[in-house]
Amino acid sequence: VGDQVLEIVPSNEEQIKNLLQLEAQEHLQLDFWKSPTTPGETAHVRVPFVNVQAVKVFLESQGIAYSIMIED
């Protein structure tokens, strides 16, 4: 199991704000291929294997929908 690319769908401005804060966490080494800008629009982010669980827990705790787009 390696890195994953998640497709994330924020449903409101609050969730977009939370994702932008997540993007700013440099220690997570997230690679946003497509940043969140509009509710209902997908964002794509590559998550290093060591941080996959932490990111998924965060998304679930914020009620942000996501799916695994690419499993490496």
Rank of each mutant, 00 (worst) to 15 (best):
T38Q: 11
H27V: 09
V5P: 01
E26K: 15
E26Y: 14
I64T: 01
V1K: 11
E26A: 11
L20R: 12
W33K: 10
A24S: 09
P10M: 04
T38W: 07
Q4K: 06
N51I: 06
N18T: 15
S67I: 12
Q62A: 13
G2H: 11
I64Q: 00
I16L: 12
Q62L: 12
P36H: 02
A24H: 09
I64M: 06
N18C: 15
E13T: 07
G40K: 04
K56Y: 07
I68E: 06
I16C: 09
A54F: 13
Y66T: 01
V9T: 15
R46T: 06
I70W: 13
A65I: 10
E7T: 12
E7R: 14
E71N: 12
L19D: 00
A65Y: 11
P39V: 11
F49H: 13
I70A: 11
D31G: 07
S11K: 11
E23N: 10
V5G: 03
Q53P: 10
Q15I: 02
L19Q: 00
F32R: 02
F49E: 12
I70Y: 14
K34W: 10
V5D: 04
E23T: 10
E13P: 08
Q62R: 14
T37M: 12
E14M: 08
D31V: 15
G2P: 08
V57I: 12
S35P: 15
E60V: 05
V55H: 00
Y66S: 01
S11F: 11
E60L: 04
L19E: 01
A65N: 10
G2R: 04
F49W: 11
S35L: 15
H44T: 15
V55L: 10
L30Q: 01
A43G: 04
D31M: 12
A54R: 08
E23W: 14
F58M: 05
K56N: 02
I8H: 00
D72H: 13
T42N: 05
V1W: 12
L19A: 01
Q25H: 07
V57T: 13
I8D: 01
E71T: 10
L20A: 07
V47S: 01
A24R: 11
E41V: 09
W33F: 15
L19F: 03
F32S: 02
V57C: 13
M69W: 07
Y66G: 01
E26W: 13
R46I: 08
Q25Y: 09
P36C: 04
V52F: 11
L19N: 00
T38I: 13
E23V: 15
H27W: 12
L6S: 01
Q62E: 07
S67M: 08
P36V: 08
E7Q: 12
G63A: 04
L20C: 06
I70G: 13
P36E: 03
V52S: 05
D72L: 13
I8Y: 01
E13G: 06
V47P: 01
D72W: 15
H44I: 15
S35Y: 14
P39A: 06
Q62D: 02
F32L: 02
S67G: 06
L59V: 01
K34H: 09
E14R: 07
Q15K: 02
N18Q: 14
K56F: 07
K56D: 01
L20K: 12
A43K: 02
F58Y: 10
D31S: 11
V52A: 06
Y66H: 03
I16V: 10
L59D: 00
G2N: 11
N12L: 02
V50D: 12
T42L: 06
L22S: 02
Y66A: 01
E26G: 15
S61Y: 06
A65H: 14
P10D: 01
E60K: 05
K56C: 10
S61F: 06
L22G: 03
E71C: 15
D3Y: 15
E14P: 03
A54N: 05
N12I: 02
Q29I: 05
L19M: 04
